[in-house]
Design a binder for these strands. Sequence first.
DNA 1: CATGAATGAGGCTTCATTCAT
DNA 2: GATGAATGAAGCCTCATTCAT
Lengths: 204, 204, 204, 204
Amino acid sequence: MPRVSEEHLERRRQQILDAARLCFARKGFHDSSMQDVFAESGLSAGAVYRYFKSKDDIIAALATQTMIELRGTMAEAINAEPLPTPAEVITLIARNIVARSGPEGPVRLAPQAWSLALVNPEATGYVREAILAMRGVWEDYAERMRAAGWLPADADTHAVAVAIIGLLPGFILQHLIIGDITPETLARGVRTLLPYGEPAVPGG
Amino acid sequence: MPRVSEEHLERRRQQILDAARLCFARKGFHDSSMQDVFAESGLSAGAVYRYFKSKDDIIAALATQTMIELRGTMAEAINAEPLPTPAEVITLIARNIVARSGPEGPVRLAPQAWSLALVNPEATGYVREAILAMRGVWEDYAERMRAAGWLPADADTHAVAVAIIGLLPGFILQHLIIGDITPETLARGVRTLLPYGEPAVPGG
Amino acid sequence: MPRVSEEHLERRRQQILDAARLCFARKGFHDSSMQDVFAESGLSAGAVYRYFKSKDDIIAALATQTMIELRGTMAEAINAEPLPTPAEVITLIARNIVARSGPEGPVRLAPQAWSLALVNPEATGYVREAILAMRGVWEDYAERMRAAGWLPADADTHAVAVAIIGLLPGFILQHLIIGDITPETLARGVRTLLPYGEPAVPGG
Amino acid sequence: MPRVSEEHLERRRQQILDAARLCFARKGFHDSSMQDVFAESGLSAGAVYRYFKSKDDIIAALATQTMIELRGTMAEAINAEPLPTPAEVITLIARNIVARSGPEGPVRLAPQAWSLALVNPEATGYVREAILAMRGVWEDYAERMRAAGWLPADADTHAVAVAIIGLLPGFILQHLIIGDITPETLARGVRTLLPYGEPAVPGG
DNA sequence: CATGAATGAGGCTTCATTCAT
DNA sequence: GATGAATGAAGCCTCATTCAT
């Protein structure tokens, strides 16, 4: 019988993750020290290490949590009825990204997670799973596009999902690093290129 | 060995950059120590520091060099005559990316540079410049698309460039982290979505 | 070993300062490495850096502490009743200096601190403050000399303090570097020159 | 038969010493790198090492040269006729010191040499010799004082020299570190304390 | 359960000196 | 004689992690 409630433990865990998110968003995984996390969380070293067995463990938990949230956002935007156009979906998701891109926002963790995934086998694992899961969401969308007649009956919906999901990292980077583009800019570009369900069609 | 030629100096510099590229591609900026670079380059610490004043300086030089090469590749693919379709351009660039994505290939530096740019002001500067330069290349392409009648006369070519260039980070990440997609997959997706200059048009 | 007493912390701090004093007295600030201090103190690098944020910080603390002690010695010798003669005061202080001039004695830090003060702005600050404080003590003494009629009523007591305190660095250097002079030698010289309160007066 | 004249060699040597003096006066022995000396002298590393076999060798040559000059200044001031009062001698010497105490003046080397002498056996040797030589000059002066009847016939002239020469380091330090005292201040203090040959006598 | 002092390997960089050209 | 590229030991300091209290 545990001394403290399960709920208390979970609260502590989240408190640490929240603190880590701030630190990592501000200074990156490497430049944030565990001391930074202790200070930000208001907990002692020992306390933090009771909940996470290493810094990498915190990073993994945080990255996973953030990616799950992002996938939820995508799924929500995509599953709307009636079938939203690509530009509409992209707009919604991009707006959500922007809303979470502040100086301490979780979106800033994404590029760091990608980078880590190239170098750290454990990170490769969970980033890969997260990307695959998101791609699955887009594959569903591509299916719906085909079903709606927006894509040829023999369209490769996997390839379509690969292409469309690929737009998001590009948007995140341009937004975070250059800061000169908005969801509307991206949407306009997408709408120009992919005028499905729009009054006119390209090349038409 | 004093009074060496300018050429010798340049060769040494490149020798160091080549060694650093291998190290960084293998283990990342942070997990590669300067000792790794010394060993890989076959030079002593002092020798390396004669050519670069810090590790960050090496990273900057390498990232810049790599991004300039990538921009060159893009420009070449894009400026072909007659006007290549988006799928054609993307295919060429993606093939080049894949060719340079081996375990020690320079493309592995890209996500690390993005990540660094979020955290290191100097890196923000040169990554931003590189992205803007690449986007400029795509803006030229978007102009040509419009001139060719593939885009409406009033199309926002900047927004189109933002969208299209955004496909590449997504491809790089999916290729490097998941490894299950090829230039052809991406091209098929793009062609399905953007059948400009293709026999059939979407939604048609 | 957390939650230790304030006293424990202070003891650790002093333990480090004591070790540093030995090292610096033996080999000087520059030729003593932090490794030397770690070894001498029996603590790890991390432990030492918990108490002092840099080598310069240790030097500053040590120099300041030593100079405060020296000032205390001076004040004590000077404030004796009835008014001691310059030769008496100098004798007491010189004896104290000699007692602390052993191979590992704190007096060996003094010339190093002077030297550092010429080159390091932070050191300039604390050495200047220490010298000014000591000079203040001597100014009090000069006032008492004047009050006792040993100096003319219009004597410039500041200038007198400047001159008298100036004797000490000379004594320290001759004692440490040449090693052939004693407090008694110095006292004899001073008494010969400044026979205040002595049976005979100079030039008399 | 040497390829270059003896004179040329000596000029080169002095060129290096002059450059080193500037560097060392500005930044101290330790914080001046040999690179600094190469740059300041306009010579290459190899050239400098042809004339001096090590950095310590340069320091030794410079310190010795500077101290010989200082001794010359002292001797000149002291040997004046008729016998100058202590205050007069001190004034002359202090003025010379001040004139050579600029930001790049050789006097700034003195405290560094003292400090080095505590730590480096070779430096101990030449600094000791220099101090002894200077003290010899002051012993001559003390003899003259005695001969003039300013000191008792049985005065310990060695002790007097020890005391008087000791004033100079104190002046140098107060001038260099605090910067608030002038030769006149010191002279006034000395004249007040040691009014030999002055209208009135202390304690008289 | 929590605390936070302590560890110690390892990171980046400097610098006096050498020697091939 | 002169050059300056190269060496490599050694310096200062950080930081993830542990464990005695």
